[in-house]
């Protein structure tokens, strides 16, 4: 197998363009998905069964069907309803829906992981539910939302590659175009894989920094000594990130 760097150097503008579109898709869906996740999480924690039930159905559908099916359903669905949505926006809508399902679960689970006494302790000094949420619950949850939130963000960025299937010119799509022209799959797919890898590693680093800024970087695990450590740890020294 011979490597042909010319494949990459000749088509680099396409890769750059694809990378930019992938970033656009991801940033838009990150913001919109997070915004949509807040009301979904609120519904899923509601005291009223009807609201909780509708949130459950929403989550079960979005998490139960393959993302590629969701992308096409949104794409054809908006077309059938008469609105001619450009493929890019179909992709943003699908990715936003997808992300909202996972972000809302992050919000819900970190908030419900707090001891129930924390809600009572706010109410008992005279705070309303909203004040308790604002002064007691959210400040305590924010830090612990970051690691799972970063994971969801990385998952969403990776999932955006599927949007290539509706011919949105993002990174994977451009890769397939170059591969079609050059028949050099190794060079092409390794290149775009490396670009994705760089993006996701960058997001992960960024998440660490935000978490440290908030000052709640929890150290995981506990010191395990002796014999058991032979089995219970997978790295000799610090865990490799």
């Amino acid at each position: 197998m011979r490597l042909d760097p010319g494949v990459i150097t000749d088509s680099w503008p396409l890769f750059v363009e694809g990378t930019l579109v992938t970033i656009q898709l991801s940033v838009l869906s990150f913001l919109l998905g997070l915004a949509l996740a807040v009301p979904v999480a609120a519904l899923s924690m509601s005291r009223h069964g009807v609201f909780r039930g509708s949130a459950m159905v929403y989550l079960a559908i979005l998490r139960g069907i393959p993302f590629i099916a969701l992308v096409f359903i949104v794409h054809y669905g908006t077309a059938a309803s008469g609105a001619r949505t450009p493929a890019f926006w179909s992709g943003v809508i699908a990715l936003t829906l997808f992300a909202s399902a996972y972000y809302s679960e992050v919000i819900r689970s970190t908030i419900s992981a707090l001891p129930p006494g924390q809600w009572d302790s706010g109410r008992v000094v005279g705070m309303s539910r909203l004040q308790t949420l604002r002064y007691i619950i959210v400040p305590q949850s924010l830090g612990s939302m970051i690691p799972p939130g970063v994971n969801v963000t990385i998952m969403m960025i990776k999932e955006s590659s599927v949007i290539s299937a509706i011919t949105v010119g993002e990174l994977t799509y451009q890769g397939l175009v170059v591969q079609g022209n050059t028949f050099a799959p190794f060079e092409v797919f390794i290149t775009i894989a490396l670009i994705y890898w760089g993006i996701t590693l960058g997001v992960s680093r960024l998440g660490d920094r935000v978490e440290r800024r908030i000052g709640r970087l929890q150290k995981s695990g506990r010191p395990t000594g002796g014999i058991a450590a032979r089995y219970l740890t997978l790295t000799a020294s610090k865990p490799v990130q």
């Binding site: 990776k158 590659s161 797919f189 390794i190 994705y196 996701t200």
Partner: peptide, 16 residues
Amino acid sequence: VRGTPILIQIFLCYYV
């Protein structure tokens, strides 16, 4: 593997 899309990994296995 964690940092790249599964779709690309499928392409790598299939084409490479």
